[in-house]
Computed example of a mutant assay.
Amino acid sequence: MAISRKAAALAAAFALVLPAPASASPPPKAPGTPVRTEPLAESLRLAGAGTSLAIRYRSTGHDGRPTVVSGTLALPAGRPPAGGWPVVSFGHGFGGIADACAPSHTGPSPWERAVQETLLAAGYAVAVTDYEGLGTPGDSPGIDGRSEAYDLVDIVRAARHVAPVSRNWASVGYSMGGHAALFAGALAASYAPSLRHMGTIAMAPITQWGVQTADPAFRDPAKPVNHTIPYNGRTMPLTTPGFRAADWFTPKGLELVDLAGRACIGEMIEAVAGLTNGDVLKDPAAATDAFGRALADDEIPVARYPRPVYVVHGTEDVIPIALSRMTAGQLRAAGTDVTFVPVEGADHITLLPAIATRVREWTDRLFRRR
């Protein structure tokens, strides 16, 4: 794709600060290999960024096959420290599965921006993956822990090819991105041993699928339908052998499943307003059981994570804080150094602005910077 003369000049200027190539280049299709890099549109940049890039890079898909993923990379202003800028790989919250919903197209939400800009100002490079299938050809698998983790890891590897960044990095994520950050914390050492993962901060993470699918709010035909349900109907046929949306969704539900392929979360919230589980699902309890079985493999690994973990959740979140408390307890029992932080009065949206400064402090502790 052709770029403007101004963009070309920016790219050429940026090339002057690229690190020297490694003595042994990786195979051209290895995970983390950049495919395309160009200056990020001014309207999408984080405030205070010295350089901002849109990047496409190779990763590993939900099916274990090579794929190409898009994302963004923001570097602090000024000269990098010795060894390069430390990196935060940020997992964004769920915004839909269409390409138009990718943060590299829309920019971060205002609440995610608050955390990202705070970290950038503190001297961290901020890499944000779009996740597999968002912003690039192919379908999104939606919730898929391994794919999410690979995407978070491989954008750090890609960043090291195109910018002066360190091999030291942390996984930080919100909502679905909290799920991604935790998965990355579990898999980073084995998937990318050449990098040095420093730890994880999961903010209002989506976990405990089994507990969630047992909630009567998802099973009662008369209860309002959750706006994420049509996305399940769209993504699970991709990730779950034998799953067919037509087996579980009503005609109205199938219309919403079709809409999920092109509508971002705000439009979907409007589309399901006033609809019940019974309007969308033929048998809500049976369908929810099917969703639970499909999601079972995507529960975060309960194990001893090699690096420290922070799990943070607002007390007024619509996603019950008890789920995060349970997750933190399971990880602690498995031997992980985990800190659980309840944030009084914060909901799913107000949490991030409320803790942006604390996230910077926790990140500093993970990197032992202060």
Rank of each mutant, 00 (worst) to 15 (best):
residue 212 Q to K: 13
residue 50 G to P: 09
residue 111 W to L: 06
residue 33 T to E: 12
residue 124 Y to E: 09
residue 14 F to D: 08
residue 128 V to W: 05
residue 291 F to D: 00
residue 249 F to S: 05
residue 309 V to W: 11
residue 370 R to E: 14
residue 328 A to I: 01
residue 137 P to E: 09
residue 318 V to Q: 15
residue 250 T to G: 03
residue 112 E to P: 12
residue 364 D to C: 14
residue 130 D to R: 07
residue 218 F to E: 01
residue 327 T to P: 07
residue 17 V to L: 06
residue 88 V to L: 07
residue 288 T to V: 13
residue 360 R to E: 07
residue 233 G to Q: 04
residue 13 A to R: 10
residue 64 G to D: 01
residue 85 W to P: 03
residue 280 V to T: 08
residue 343 V to A: 09
residue 312 V to D: 08
residue 29 K to S: 14
residue 89 S to N: 11
residue 89 S to F: 14
residue 306 P to C: 05
residue 212 Q to S: 11
residue 8 A to D: 06
residue 325 R to V: 02
residue 139 D to S: 15
residue 1 M to I: 00
residue 156 V to Y: 00
residue 285 A to P: 04
residue 278 G to P: 13
residue 188 A to I: 01
residue 60 T to W: 09
residue 88 V to R: 13
residue 264 C to T: 12
residue 93 G to Y: 09
residue 64 G to P: 00
residue 352 L to I: 12
residue 303 A to C: 06
residue 77 A to N: 10
residue 168 N to E: 15
residue 183 F to N: 03
residue 153 V to F: 04
residue 8 A to K: 12
residue 191 Y to V: 05
residue 208 Q to M: 14
residue 247 D to V: 05
residue 297 D to V: 00
residue 367 F to L: 14
residue 355 I to R: 08
residue 42 E to G: 00
residue 183 F to V: 00
residue 31 P to R: 09
residue 366 L to K: 11
residue 294 A to R: 10
residue 159 A to I: 05
residue 180 A to I: 02
residue 58 R to S: 03
residue 271 A to F: 03
residue 179 H to Q: 05
residue 64 G to W: 00
residue 350 T to N: 12
residue 182 L to A: 03
residue 226 N to W: 09
residue 28 P to W: 14
residue 65 R to Y: 05
residue 355 I to F: 08
residue 196 R to V: 11
residue 79 R to C: 00
residue 157 R to W: 03
residue 166 S to K: 12
residue 103 P to F: 04
residue 190 S to V: 10
